[in-house]
Design a protein around this nucleic acid. Structure first.
Lengths: 212, 212
DNA sequence: GGACTAAAGTTAGCATCTCTAACATGGATT
DNA sequence: AATCCATGTTAGAGATGCTAACTTTAGTCC
């Protein structure tokens, strides 16, 4: 097997004794977070699941917060990819592209509520994590791109930025509310697609008229 | 002193030896959550702050989750009150009333980001907590009431419910995004009031036209 | 007033967790 | 082959969650 790519783009070291423990720990923690909630995980349990001693993780991560940051980072990559893919599957510049991005977002939240909450609930060791900050902005960038295409404006146009942010706020809030009161949705059943299309239409409808 | 009301509506027991430890613990935990993040609190530290032994809290709360639920419950009461007050300060049925409720929400998130996150991030012991569930719906009720007044429809009208939910989603998402990337707002400075007014106008503008 | 009861607090202690220190091992480089 | 260092191990200190068993105090009933 001539593939020397034992560096999965995360760290240039990850396949010595164990296989690659780092990735396996992140997977284990992801599972724990999903099973027992964002704070219901322990380094010890993750190590146990990965079949190593409880001290092994500290060779890969400084402390428990850094492990969580690893999970978040990986999750944001997947979220970003999902958003891009959703947009790419629709005609460029279409309203459907915007709605599809939103749906991908909601779907992610629904599929992995624990991780989703973790991504947007990190505060402990998250203070100065420029990489995560940048990944977040990168996700917003997907929305901005689609909105810009739809409005036929430059992505840097403040009008584009504003509307993209509004859309993101809505989708973000909807996702959170959705996973919070999972079954007990006060507003009855909601067809997400119709819903997102309607919002997108409403927010992107009227032409640029900033007057503040 | 003929007042036998030593039951402060929370529990019929709360003023023996210590004063009332229960409330004091909740206050302490609130401070800890605000200072060190939602999961950066410990029962031991809270007890220390209240000046009691580390086992004392368990006379008032079953476990750590129940303490958090207490904090959340108290916070939701305050949030609800703030929303009501904001609405009451504006003309009934006005767009300003709707926007004011949203502003109160955002202000709460900004003032107590840790607690805010806790309120909407609880998952551990939150599973079956009908009281919290009900308080959440009660908050939504404030929005519904204002929207119904604005549209001159009955609060039970599905159109009202839908638009109120949309508005809440947006405000909720905005609040979260705001406290997440606190200083680093991509979309530059935002005048919340103008912002909320614009959204409210957009969402409540067109007349009822459900066609799904 | 004095004895009983139960609430509210204390100390002691077990199991668990985080993280560090000191040691062991085995791949990769030279 | 010798060496180095990443990666793992065990041992252990310190802190935490929570329980058990005991003590203190306030209210109640006679």
């Amino acid at each position: 097997m001539p593939d020397e790519t034992h560096a999965p783009a995360v760290t240039p070291k990850a396949a010595y004794h164990h296989g690659d423990l780092r990735a396996q720990l992140i997977t284990a923690v992801r599972g724990l977070v999903e099973a027992h909630g964002p704070d219901g995980f322990s380094v010890a349990e993750a190590a146990r699941r990965a079949g190593v001693s409880s001290a092994a993780p500290y060779k890969h991560f400084k402390d428990r917060h850094e492990i969580l940051r690893g999970v978040v980072s990986e999750a944001m990559d997947r979220l970003h990819a999902a958003m891009e893919a959703a947009a790419a599957a629709q005609p460029a510049g279409s309203l459907d592209a915007v709605a599809a991005i939103g749906l991908a977002y909601v779907d992610f939240a629904r599929a992995e509520p624990g991780v989703f909450r973790l991504v947007f609930g990190l505060t402990e060791g998250h203070e100065n994590a420029p990489d995560l900050q940048q990944k977040g902005e990168s996700c917003l960038g997907v929305v901005v791109k689609a909105v810009a295409a739809r409005l036929d404006l430059h992505p840097n146009d403040p009008e584009v930025q504003r509307r993209a942010y509004i859309l993101w706020s809505f989708v973000h809030g909807h996702s959170f509310l959705h996973i919070d009161m999972k079954t007990k949705v006060t507003t009855a059943e909601i067809d997400d697609w119709e819903y997102l299309m309607e919002i997108s239409r409403a927010i992107l409808a009227q032409a640029a008229r900033s007057q503040s």
